[in-house]
Amino acid sequence: MHRPIASVLIAATLATPAVAGDPTPTDLVDYRETYFEGLSKHMKAIGMVVKGKVARPADLAGHAQAIAAVSDHLTGLFPAGTGPDAVPTTEALPAVWTDPDGFKAKAAAFSEKAKAFAAIAAKGDLEASKAAFFAVGKACGDCHDTFRKDDH
């Protein structure tokens, strides 16, 4: 007879009141897309430097570091309930949730390449940085190929 009451009490204790309201699935998708836009802007900036369009090779290390620093956030940005069923505008494919191991493997490959790039860029070797940058881009494309909608 005590159990239902105890359950209610425990539930009440665990449910911490949200100060600014819990994030909605749309908020989470918005945050996720903002994260990826940030990555793509850094990648685009790096591209402009490695192509020699902008003569700022010393900037590479900072951009690479920024990408590496947030690279481990990626898998955490896809909680259950943020797929196309809940938020139709998301470009994430259901495979993110139906093949979590495959998704984590691709995300881990990205993070590994991003950290390797950051280490190489920190040494200031432009040629080696170009190759490491390409490896990061390849990891991006490789994951998008399986887990993101084609946008064409």
Binding site: M43, G137, K138, G141, H144
Partner: peptide
């Protein structure tokens, strides 16, 4: 041009 990458 968007800083995205091709795959496959």
């Amino acid at each position: 041009p968007e800083g995205d990458f091709v795959g496959g």
